[in-house]
């Protein structure tokens, strides 16, 4: 038994302080991004989510300059960016990609400046890599309560707006008819997504943050047809990806090049992608089995719906 454990978990894994912090933060953040990300996927806002994560680079590097924790930088900039995207017209279908792209470009411009200043002002060249690609093992322990509290707030907001978000994602018109302030809900969701993706940036970096926001929810949506269930399943897949990533990264210390562990973010994102592909296979097998049982033509279950054509532009 101990041989197996030793093979899976390299010596010292469970006694290591940074590892334990990484395990806790990674799990909490994965649960949050799983819940928030289900709506990102069904509202087709993956690009906006990605932009909110990446502009965090500017905030993170600015925070490094001023000596505060990068998380506050990620979040501050992401919330400002969410507001800017709204002002520039992210709520109009035709303008949303342009508004998102403009804010993303501007944010990355500032990131280029601040990261340059970071590297010239200190001897550390690792800061750029840490901000862009994350470093789960360097999370400072005093940040733990803040991260957990923020995560709890996001989960409470998502739970209390659950039905309203579902209805306005299903059809903004149907929601408006029922008196839902659709645009306010959209802005609130953008801000919640900014916070969630900032938490993800804290764990796997600003560039990779969308992987946690979109990957596990997309995986879950392949496997479950209930929205609430999808959020739980997405959270569990996210936790699994982060934990397996942490174990592999810790083990990789003994892999070539010896004494240099591989980046934990690489393993996390790789697991996210493997899960997504695996869920596709599972879903396809399940469909084939159901169709055989019902005796239907294999394609019926998936493409039984009629094409939606814009018949009336009025």
């Amino acid at each position: 038994m101990s041989h197996v454990l030793n093979a899976l978990f390299a010596p010292g894994f469970f006694a290591n302080g940074p590892v334990r912090a990484a395990v806790v933060v990674g799990a909490v953040v994965a649960l949050v991004t799983g819940a928030v990300g289900v709506f990102t996927v069904i509202r087709s806002q993956a690009f906006a989510g990605h932009a909110l994560g990446e502009v965090g680079s500017a905030g993170g590097s600015l925070a490094f300059l001023s000596g505060t924790n990068p998380l506050w930088g990620y979040m501050g900039i992401a919330v400002v960016a969410a507001g800017l995207m709204e002002v520039l017209g992210v709520h109009r279908p035709r303008a949303r990609d342009v508004a998102t792209g403009l804010v993303l470009g501007a944010g990355l411009g500032f990131a280029a400046l601040f990261l340059y200043l970071d590297t010239t002002s200190s001897t550390s060249t690792g800061v750029t890599v840490t901000i862009l690609f994350g470093s789960l093992f360097t999370i400072s322990q005093p940040m733990l309560p803040g991260i957990v509290a923020l995560s709890a707030i996001v989960l409470v907001v998502i739970a209390s707006c659950y039905r309203i978000l579902l209805l306005s994602s299903l059809s903004p018109e149907l929601a408006a008819v029922r008196g839902v302030p659709v645009r306010a809900v959209a802005i609130a969701y953008l801000v919640i997504m900014a916070v969630a993706v900032s938490l993800a940036a804290e764990t796997i970096g600003t560039i990779l943050a969308t992987a946690l926001l979109v990957g596990p929810p997309a995986t879950a949506l392949r496997l479950t047809k209930r929205p609430g269930g999808a959020m739980v399943v997405a959270g569990l897949f996210g936790v699994a990806a982060v934990w397996i990533g942490i174990v592999l990264a810790y083990d990789s210390f003994y892999w070539p090049p010896v004494d240099h562990g591989w980046p934990v973010s690489f393993f996390v994102v790789a697991m996210v992608f493997v899960f997504y592909l695996g869920a596709g296979v599972v879903a396809a097998v399940g469909r084939a089995r159901r169709n055989r049982r019902v005796g239907m033509f294999p394609a019926m279950g998936e493409s039984g719906c009629e094409p939606h054509v814009d018949a009336d532009a009025a």
Partner: peptide, 20 residues
Amino acid sequence: MPLRARDVVGLGLDGHRLGI
């Protein structure tokens, strides 16, 4: 869209309400 027919109908009842 992770919605069953019964979810869509249920949203007609209370989709404008806060909470789960």
